[in-house]
């Protein structure tokens, strides 16, 4: 017993001060992509051809970036001969609509809170059931760590529950393989109304690396109505947490500091 307490003291307090304080991210972290317009010559399309999931398209001589398809791999920035493609350290990328995941001339539309009815119901206690519907377990890994003492989502009233009947919503990962489709639909029906659907990761949003797979769906969007999209492959835990807090109306700011 004394040994346990002694070890507990040695392990210190480890919960991060987020969201009051902005976190320190690794130097090479790849967050929200950005194009340095002054360097981009507009006529080359090296970034477009290098992208494994065709997330980048050229419209009006301007690259448009679909974060729903983006795997945040370094290929485009490595392929760009002009050094115009950068990944910033901005981890905040969750949106309410699929269209808002496209980076173009418009300002990036970060997630707005739920409408009043659901926000009142879930704002202080939001219980989620996670359904892994294909994919690689990467998004599950990064969702799971939210329950560790580092992120401690319990302090925001958010938690993961074992039964869909106890849940307020679903977190869905994976492209929805044909073999998981019916299990996902059954789980969705078991969640009482009103409910929330959150798509975490490129697979759940667009199919990710498995876009147009013969045995998987292109994400959950054409099966269920999605309330929150969290891009990444996998998203950083803070990207997920930031998205959840925005959805519940507990975080508004658009500027970082």
């Amino acid at each position: 017993m004394i040994k346990s307490l002694w070890t507990r003291l040695k392990q210190h307090h480890r919960t991060i001060a987020f969201p009051k304080q902005e976190p320190r991210l690794p130097e090479k972290f790849r967050g929200l992509p950005s194009i340095v317009q002054s360097r981009c010559p507009k006529h080359c399309s090296e970034c477009v051809t290098s992208c494994p999931t065709d997330a980048i398209t050229m419209k009006d001589k301007q690259p448009h970036w679909d974060l729903g398809r983006c795997l945040f791999c370094p290929e485009c920035s490595r392929a760009c001969p002009h050094g115009a493609v950068l990944f910033t350290d901005d981890y905040r990328m969750a949106t309410r609509t699929r269209d808002n995941l496209v980076i173009g001339p418009k300002e990036y539309g970060l997630a707005q809170p739920l409408e009043d009815q659901r926000r009142k119901l879930f704002g202080k206690s939001f219980k989620l059931r996670v359904v892994s519907a294909g994919g690689c377990n990467g998004c599950e890994v990064e969702t799971n760590v939210l329950e560790t003492i580092v992120f401690d989502i319990g302090r925001f009233g958010i938690g993961v529950v074992a039964s869909p009947r106890h849940a307020d919503g679903l977190i869905i990962t994976g492209p929805v393989t044909h073999n998981m489709k019916s299990a996902l639909e059954k789980t969705y029906r078991a969640v009482p109304d009103p409910k929330v659907v959150i798509a975490v990761g490129a697979c759940a949003i667009s199919g990710g690396p498995y876009i147009d797979s013969p045995v998987a769906n292109n994400g959950v969007g054409n099966l269920l109505s999605v309330d929150l999209y969290i891009p990444g492959c996998p998203p950083h835990p803070l990207t997920i947490l930031d998205g959840l807090l925005r959805l519940l109306g507990r975080r508004y700011s658009t500027s970082r500091r």
Partner: peptide
Amino acid sequence: KRTLPYMETLAGDTT
């Protein structure tokens, strides 16, 4: 160009 993403997501914890 799809090959590497497939390899990296065969098992996400064993990328």
